[in-house]
Each structure stands twice: as C-alpha cells, then as structure tokens.
Amino acid sequence: MNVHDKAYELAKAIKESSEYREMKESRTTIDGDASSKSLLEDFRKRQNELQQKMAVGEMPPQEELEQIQKLYEVLSLNPRINQLFEAERRLSIILEDVQRIIAEPLESMLK
C-alpha cells in the first residue's frame, strides 16, 4: 500500500463529498451576488487579521472580538452567506475527523 496514493484517494473522496460540493455551490452563488460577495470578503479580511494577531501571540481587544462576532451574526442573517457558513462548518467537521484518524498512529507511538 502506498500512503501517497491513499492520500490522493482521500483528497478525491473529499472533493466528491456532498459537504464539499455544497460549500463550493454556496461559494459560487455568493460570487454571483456582488453585495453578498463584498460583505463576505470584508468579514474574511477582518477574520484573517484577527487570526494573524492571535497567531503571533497578540490578544486583540475584547471590543474587536465582539465586533467580529456581531458581524458574523449579521452575515448569518443573509441566507446565501449562512448557507456557506453551514457548509463550511460541516466540511470542517469532516476534516477534523480525518485529521484525528490520521494522527492516531502517531499518538500511540508517543505514549
């Protein structure tokens, strides 16, 4: 068995999953709606800036965290964006499960 071949099979299975397809379709729908696309891009930009700060150990002010949470809640009221958020959440769960499963052999060696 070739591990790389299995990894490519896994990548293909993920791309063929309903979760991936739903996320891709949601993204295409949003890309076709200029206002939804603009709102989402602004949110992603702010979200990335926040994550970059946290990655270097800088804790953003509580006010900034609350602003991004409120923006998320407002965006969730947009049916197209909410559908994307839900699709991303479902795919994220699958990817976390896959990562956990892949890590199992290493965890047993570290014990």
Rank of each mutant, 00 (worst) to 15 (best):
M23H: 01
K24A: 14
K24F: 08
K24L: 06
E25L: 15
E25Q: 14
S26E: 04
R27P: 03
R27F: 13
T28R: 15
T28A: 13
T28I: 12
T29W: 00
T29L: 14
I30T: 01
I30K: 03
G32Q: 08
G32V: 06
D33G: 03
D33W: 01
A34W: 04
A34H: 08
S35N: 05
S35Q: 08
S36D: 05
K37H: 14
K37L: 12
S38R: 00
S38Q: 07
L39T: 05
L39R: 11
L40H: 04
L40M: 10
L40P: 01
L40Q: 05
L40T: 01
D42H: 04
D42R: 04
D42L: 05
D42P: 03
R44C: 04
R44N: 07
K45F: 03
K45W: 04
K45A: 04
N48A: 14
N48W: 06
E49P: 01
E49Y: 06
L50G: 01
L50Y: 01
Q51Y: 06
Q51W: 10
Q51A: 11
Q51C: 04
Q52Y: 07
Q52T: 15
K53G: 06
M54I: 07
A55Y: 08
A55K: 10
A55C: 12
V56L: 10
G57Y: 03
G57L: 04
G57F: 07
E58Q: 01
E58C: 00
M59P: 09
P60N: 04
P60V: 03
P61T: 02
Q62I: 09
E63W: 00
E64V: 11
E64H: 05
Q67E: 10
Q67P: 02
Q67I: 12
Q67F: 07
Q67S: 10
I68Y: 00
Q69H: 01
Q69W: 00
Q69L: 01
K70L: 08
K70P: 02
E73L: 03
V74A: 14
L75C: 07
L75A: 03
N78Y: 11
N78I: 09
N78V: 08
P79R: 15
R80N: 15
R80S: 13
R80I: 05
R80G: 06
I81R: 00
N82A: 13
Q83D: 13
Q83F: 07
L84W: 02
L84R: 05
F85E: 06
F85Y: 11
F85T: 06
F85K: 07
E86G: 07
A87E: 07
E88S: 02
R89W: 07
R89P: 03
R89V: 02
R89L: 04
R90I: 12
R90P: 02
S92H: 06
S92M: 05
S92G: 12
I93G: 00
I93L: 01
I94M: 09
I94S: 00
L95V: 11
L95K: 02
L95D: 02
E96I: 02
E96N: 10
V98D: 09
V98M: 11
V98Y: 06
V98T: 07
V98C: 13
Q99M: 14
Q99Y: 09
R100E: 06
R100S: 14
I101N: 13
I101D: 11
I101R: 14
I102A: 15
I102M: 15
A103N: 11
A103F: 07
A103M: 11
A103P: 04
E104H: 00
E104R: 14
E104S: 12
P105N: 14
P105K: 09
L106F: 15
L106A: 15
L106N: 12
L106K: 14
E107M: 10
